[in-house]
Write a protein that binds this DNA or RNA. Structure first.
Length: 500
RNA sequence: GGCGCGUUCGUCUAGCGGCCUAGGACACCGCCCUCUCAAGGCGGAGAUCACGGGUUCAAAUCCCGUACGCGCUACCA
């Protein structure tokens, strides 16, 4: 076997790949790119029942979205193909037969009902579960008899009854299992398909995989794999079992925890760069202080030695923050490009389509600093597009900085019914004055607007906070929005005066 | 039940015997900036390094035990 680093991502097409799964793909890819090796995608579709149509496509799309490219795989081929296990079934039965012939495996005719039964009784007696080995030593004659009642036997591995199996895991060190605690697991199922154990060992060997990086949940089955390599007379690869990714309740991340499919994050408007950065930091670190880094920096510094052993909780808060960091670094053009479709989809029906590209860019330039993820943008920007907003009049006073009113509105069931502060007249007077002054402006831009309004504040003897705050609410229907003058400039004189 | 792995601020982590009265980041709190919100700057709170024993002049770091958590325990991967 060569020195070359060859790693693989071997997903099962049973649904959309989730973040834990993709993190495994990422670490494999990082190792390959760091060491100048090959990254291989292999589809493990040996479970005919759970196989899902279209899943392979989503898996590949997920990788593409993140920019994880592969050197060999189902679509691009390669010298060790095919890369879909259902296209390699022949090789597994050949391998299984080899083990039967070398007395490392045997046919088992036990019906599944019997298997369930022995498992139940083992459980009831608080004994370890596992196949009892009934068919382990059948004579040729007995087998001929059994085959009559079950013509489609499975092939089981003949597990050594004594001794220990030790292997080294790069992340966990030496791990040892007692062979007698391992049962005669199935290699070949009755439908002729291999189990994961057989297929992955046969393929990893055939594809000359040098390192197997996979999730920690596989650690308990690794001794079986090691024993398989031994039985075949093959050299096992280097193993590294990655720490699990957990949900907020500290159990293995799954659908119960909400969005786990990587494509969900794409749809919600997370950036692949941010996702990559975040996922890299789940179980790996560059040093004691670096959090924000591009993927090339990760590649240049990636090493198995810096992967931790303890599981990591997937913290959506931190992902969102990181995404905001990347979002703010984008140019307004790019933000507009990436949010155009979302705006088109989520803005109200009253907004006329198609959206004006130049206008969207301008809006994005002031919104992007206020969003963490793209899906927030339509809401944050809606008042730029729609007149169709309303607010309780009293919100104007809240916008002017009266915190007690703000609190009152938040706790009130019907803010519209709240009585207005007494200086209502002076506020409407101020707004009218602003309207008057602004209608005379010929040169409608940020700076002249600012000069005019700051002057007006002086004339009226009010404060920036009060005047600008009142205008903000009238203009946007909210107390929180981008800076007033930029907002006004973007909206334009006509629309602006209309709202005033 | 059995087996395995894990255990440093709420969360992600740094730490691989003295630099640690434990560093960074998210979240949280306060202040500054300021037309609001963000962003940014500054500061704060937050971890008796799960617990108990060893080893050592010296342990978060090495060893043993305990507890807890998680994973596996399928003709699923």
């Amino acid at each position: 076997m060569g020195e070359a680093v060859r790693v693989r991502y071997a997903p099962s097409p049973t649904g959309d790949p989730h973040v834990g799964n993709i993190r495994s793909a990422l670490f494999n890819w990082l190792l390959a790119r760091r060491l100048g090796g090959k990254f291989i995608v292999r589809i493990e579709d040996t479970d005919q029942a759970r196989k899902m149509e279209g899943s392979v496509q989503v898996i590949l799309d997920s990788l593409r979205w993140l920019g994880i490219d592969w050197d060999e795989g189902p679509d691009v081929g390669g010298e060790f193909g095919p890369y879909i296990q259902s296209d390699r079934v022949e090789s597994y039965s050949v391998a299984a037969n080899r083990l039967v012939e070398s007395d490392n495996a045997y046919y088992c005719y036990c019906p599944s009902e019997r298997l369930v039964m022995i498992r139940e009784s083992q459980k009831k007696q608080n004994r370890p579960t596992g196949y009892d080995g009934r068919c382990r030593n059948l004579s040729a004659l007995e087998r001929a008899e059994e085959v009559k009642s079950n013509p489609t036997p499975v092939v089981r591995f003949k597990m050594p009854l004594t001794g220990k199996t030790t292997f080294n895991d790069v992340i966990r060190g030496d791990v040892t299992w007692e062979n007698r605690l391992l049962d005669d697991f199935v290699l070949l199922k009755s439908d002729g398909y291999p189990t994961y154990h057989l297929a992955s060992v046969v393929d990893d060997n055939a594809m000359e995989i040098s390192h197997v990086l996979r999730a920690d949940e596989w650690l308990p089955s690794t001794p079986r794999h090691v024993l398989l390599y031994e039985a075949f007379g093959w050299n096992p690869p280097i193993f590294a079992h990655l720490p699990l990714i957990l949900g907020s309740d500290r159990s293995k991340l799954s659908k119960r925890h909400g969005s786990v499919s990587i494509m969900d994050y794409k749809d919600q408007g997370y950036l692949p760069e941010a996702m990559l950065n975040f996922l890299s930091l789940l179980g790996w670190s560059l040093d004691d202080k670096t959090t924000e880094m591009d993927i090339n920096t990760v590649i240049e510094n990636f090493s198995l030695e810096r992967i931790g052993a303890s599981p990591a909780v997937f913290d959506l808060e931190k992902l969102s923050w990181l995404n905001g960091v990347y979002l703010r670094n984008l140019s307004a053009d790019v933000v507009a490009e990436k949010s155009f479709e979302l705006l088109d989809r989520d803005l109200g029906v009253d907004v006329s389509r198609p959206l004006d590209w130049a206008y969207v860019v301008k809006v994005c330039s002031v919104i992007q600093d206020r969003a963490r993820i793209f899906s927030e943008i339509p809401h944050l920007a809606s008042f730029f597009f729609s007149e169709n907003y309303s607010y309780p009049v009293i919100l104007i006073w809240a916008g002017m900085g009266d915190k007690s009113i703000k609190k009152l509105i938040e706790t009130s069931e019907d803010p519209r019914a709240l009585s207005l502060p007494e200086d209502r007249d002076s506020v409407s007077h101020s707004l009218a004055a602003a309207s008057g002054a602004l209608s005379k402006i010929d040169d409608w831009n940020h700076d002249t607007l600012e000069a005019t309004l700051r002057n007006l504040v002086q004339e009226l003897g009010t404060s920036n906070r009060r005047l600008f705050g009142a205008m903000r609410v009238v203009l946007t229907g909210r107390t929180e929005a981008p800076p007033l003058f930029s907002t006004m400039e973007i909206l334009g004189q006509k629309i602006f005066l209309g709202r005033l």
